[in-house]
Design a protein around this nucleic acid. Sequence first.
DNA 1: TCTTGCCGTGAAACGCGTTTCATAGCCTAT
DNA 2: ATAGGCTATGAAACGCGTTTCACGGCAAGA
Lengths: 317, 317
Amino acid sequence: MTNIRDLAREANVSVTTVSRVLNDHPYVANEKRQAVREAIEKLGYIRNQTAVHLSTGMTKTVGVMLPFVDHPYHAAILQGIAQAAFDASYRFLTWQTNYVETHEQLALDALAQQEIDALIVVSHSLPLSVILPYERHGPIVFCEHHEDVVAVYIDHYTAFQQGLAHLRQQGHTSIGICLGRPDSTNSLARKHAYQEVVCDEFVYEQTLTIEDGATVARRWMQQKQRPTAILTASDHVAAGLILELRKQGYQVPGDLSVIGFDGSELAEVLAMTTIAIPYATIGRHAFQLTIREDPIARPQIEVPSAFISGTTVLPHA
Amino acid sequence: MTNIRDLAREANVSVTTVSRVLNDHPYVANEKRQAVREAIEKLGYIRNQTAVHLSTGMTKTVGVMLPFVDHPYHAAILQGIAQAAFDASYRFLTWQTNYVETHEQLALDALAQQEIDALIVVSHSLPLSVILPYERHGPIVFCEHHEDVVAVYIDHYTAFQQGLAHLRQQGHTSIGICLGRPDSTNSLARKHAYQEVVCDEFVYEQTLTIEDGATVARRWMQQKQRPTAILTASDHVAAGLILELRKQGYQVPGDLSVIGFDGSELAEVLAMTTIAIPYATIGRHAFQLTIREDPIARPQIEVPSAFISGTTVLPHA
DNA sequence: TCTTGCCGTGAAACGCGTTTCATAGCCTAT
DNA sequence: ATAGGCTATGAAACGCGTTTCACGGCAAGA
């Protein structure tokens, strides 16, 4: 492999000058610049990026810690990160953690070991007390709300309030909710909004996928005391719920009103009442925050959710 | 930042010995090994990975070139890659290209510039004549079939034949197909299978998403001459098609039989007839092929598809 | 007793681009 | 005429871990 010293020799200049040409620095005479360019051409030189990384002390790479790359919600955030990173000529490394703490730790290690310049935590199970000390090695941005961290998030409390208010306006008093991981930050905020207005609790936990939604449907069908409406934590869960109910001969919204969450394509095609979240925007903001200039301040960005009226909610008699 | 020379000084050994301790090499006396460990502890040493990368000439990182990170089909492959890479202590960098050739080129550049050790091409639009020369910089593995390249793929020709044969057995003679990018390798294979058995062609192109499926439904409804069955190139397209038709009062499979493609959760909950593809397996194999020992041979792995009988196909009178 | 051979250790080279600092010529403002 | 500033250029240091090579010591096989 030819390196810049070979180029310098070939072009009769110093390595400094070669480096300047490579980086488009000014203060290089045109003849020398030309000579270096010819040497590059002649010797087929290709810049070694790992050397650049070592030399500059940065990798122009951010890490992304997320539980699953193939779940629609996370993939949508990833999409936003991918786009913003691309625009800024950054790369991103992904740690798919499955919420396993030792796997999450590897992403933190990578930050400490200077493999990445910054870390975006989409979702985590390690406590903040473990994660935050790593901020001394580089910016860490969260995609969910915590006090005193850099974060871009949506207000799940308010979003759920909106959904619940809508159902109550429609006369529903017996309302159920579907949550993901029961103790996640987001679930706690949702449960909080729920418990403020509801007496009889119908909480379905660990619902993440379409299949989980179908499972909720089966549980609902077997219940003696049933809610007349369910607010879910994802369109996929809602879709599984709706489709399974209909498959079994129930009416949605006739027998059960359902509200989704995400504002996905799936909600659109099912004409689902849902709460739209701009996930790609979250990803983009998160990336932007990693490369912000001020490393001291801890900005927080709240992105808005939007209630979308569809055909899966009916007034309750 | 403390480095191994600081450690060597602190522990009264040479940097070589420190390196050996760090890498668990034998031939280090226990006292010295212990002394180095204490120095690491005392000085809070953290290995600089970029230096390791430069020194060893490899990054333990593979690149993934794919059009979209948030499309179910690609995300599923990514999932397999993520898992296999994790198991092998590798990382992966993702280039989301949107099929833009200049973006694809950046992934190739990264391979040449030693940012990644190998590249997995999930899908591409650059011609092979541009891509293959980069094999001299590291292994390149494709997730679709081409002659004389390292590849892991499914036989779309045979898979489509299966679907078509099923429809014909059920008495359908007027059959339509949905394709993605019309000139992609996979689409060509599919079209090939289709044109071998069908006279009247109903080809719906550029279908990738649920929304695209709904669009196909609208087109189908407006057609005078309509197929009685449609074979799609993805479950999402099929789902959009089915749900839109039902929303408009048509019967599936009564008015139109539909076969999906992927074997996704969505197909399962819709009890869709589909062709299941083990995408995660493709991703895993692809990763394995990047770190294979023999860099000369060009192995190919064909992964099987599986016809899954559901409730979206009805015999034609 | 002599030769292998393994254990243990370190100096120095290596991978390679960036950046600091010093130097020098030349022009402009005072 | 002189100080100050800009253009140009290169030597050398820097970032930092790995690896090659050489060498001393000791034990086992010949």
